[in-house]
Amino acid sequence: DRHTIHIGDITIHLEGFSEEELKLAEELIKRGIHLEEVKRILEELYR
C-alpha cells in the first residue's frame, strides 16, 4: 500500500505504514526531523 504525506509543496511517499504511523511521521517531519530519522523511529516503534 502507498501513502502520501503533503507538507507545503513537498510530497513524501511512504509505503507499508498504517494511518497512525503516517500521522506520527508527518508530525515529526513538520517538527524538522530528517526523513531518515523518521523512518528509523517508525521502524523501532512499530516493527
Rank of each mutant, 00 (worst) to 15 (best):
E27D: 10
E26K: 10
I7A: 13
F17I: 13
F17C: 06
H34L: 11
I10W: 08
E26C: 09
G8V: 08
I41P: 00
L24C: 08
H6A: 14
E44Q: 02
G16P: 04
D1F: 00
I12V: 12
H6F: 00
E15P: 14
F17N: 05
E27K: 07
H34E: 11
L42C: 00
V38A: 03
D9Y: 01
F17S: 04
R2A: 14
K30H: 08
D1C: 13
Y46N: 15
S18T: 14
I41K: 02
D1N: 11
I7D: 10
I7H: 09
E26S: 10
L42M: 08
V38N: 00
R47S: 14
K23C: 03
L35S: 06
V38K: 00
I29S: 03
H34P: 15
E26A: 12
E21F: 15
K39V: 13
I29M: 06
G32C: 04
T11N: 03
T11Q: 12
H13G: 08
G8E: 07
R47A: 15
E26H: 09
G8K: 07
V38I: 11
S18V: 07
G8P: 05
L14F: 12
H6V: 14
I10C: 11
I7S: 09
L35A: 10
L45I: 15
K39S: 04
H3G: 12
L24Q: 05
I5H: 04
E43Q: 02
T4L: 02
I41D: 00
L28W: 03
E15C: 12
G8T: 08
R40T: 03
L42R: 00
V38Q: 00
L28E: 01
K23T: 09
L42V: 10
G32A: 10
E20R: 04
E37K: 05
I10E: 07
R40H: 05
L24V: 14
E21V: 15
D1E: 08
D1Q: 06
S18I: 05
L28Y: 03
K23D: 04
V38R: 00
R2V: 14
L45E: 12
L14T: 04
R40G: 01
I33Y: 10
H6K: 13
T11P: 04
E37S: 04
I29Q: 02
T4Q: 13
H6N: 11
L22Q: 09
E21R: 07
K39E: 03
E37Y: 04
G16K: 09
D9W: 01
R2P: 15
S18K: 11
H6Q: 15
E43D: 11
E15M: 10
E19F: 12
E19S: 13
E43Y: 02
H6G: 10
A25V: 13
E44G: 00
H3Y: 01
E36H: 06
L14Y: 05
I29H: 03
R31G: 09
I5R: 02
G32R: 02
I29F: 09
E15R: 05
I41V: 05
V38F: 04
I5D: 08
E20Y: 08
T11F: 09
L22T: 10
A25I: 13
R47W: 03
E26F: 10
R31V: 11
R2T: 15
H6P: 07
H6W: 00
D9I: 06
V38E: 00
E36W: 02
R31T: 11
R40E: 03
A25D: 00
E15K: 12
E43H: 02
D1P: 06
I12N: 04
I12F: 02
A25W: 04
D1Y: 00
E21M: 15
K23W: 10
H13P: 03
I5C: 02
E43S: 01
S18C: 14
G32F: 13
L35M: 13
L22W: 12
G32E: 03
A25C: 02
I10P: 04
E19P: 13
E43A: 02
S18G: 14
I10V: 15
A25H: 02
I5Y: 00
G8C: 10
K39G: 02
F17Q: 02
L22V: 13
L42F: 02
E44L: 03
R40A: 06
I29T: 06
R31S: 11
E43K: 03
L14A: 06
L24A: 04
G8D: 07
H3D: 10
E26Y: 12
I12A: 06
I41Q: 03
F17E: 03
Y46M: 15
E44N: 04
G16W: 12
T11L: 05
D1I: 13
E37M: 06
L35R: 04
K39F: 13
G16S: 05
T11G: 06
D1W: 00
E36S: 07
L22G: 05
K30P: 01
E36D: 12
E27S: 09
L24S: 03
E43L: 02
I29N: 02
D9G: 12
Y46R: 15
I33C: 08
E15Y: 05
I12M: 07
S18A: 13
E37L: 13
G32K: 03
V38C: 01
I10Y: 07
L22K: 11
H34D: 14
K30L: 09
R2Y: 14
K23Y: 06
L22M: 09
E27M: 09
L28P: 00
E21K: 07
T11W: 03
E44M: 01
I10F: 13
L22E: 05
E15V: 13
L35W: 14
R2W: 14
I7Q: 05
R40N: 03
G16Y: 08
G32I: 14
E20M: 10
I29L: 12
I33R: 04
F17D: 04
T4D: 11
R31I: 07
E21Y: 15
L24K: 06
F17R: 05
L14P: 02
A25L: 09
S18N: 11
E20H: 09
E26R: 09
I41S: 01
E21W: 15
H3M: 10
L45Y: 14
G32V: 08
I10M: 11
E37R: 03
K30G: 08
D9R: 04
T11R: 07
Y46W: 14
E37Q: 08
E37N: 04
D9F: 02
I33T: 08
R40C: 01
D9T: 13
K23R: 14
Y46V: 15
E36I: 06
L14G: 04
I41T: 02
E37G: 02
V38H: 00
I10D: 06
E26N: 09
R47C: 13
I33H: 08
L45K: 03
E27L: 06
E21C: 01
E36M: 06
T4H: 15
H34A: 12
E36V: 06
H3I: 13
H3A: 10
L42D: 00
R40Q: 07
E26D: 11
R47G: 15
E27Y: 04
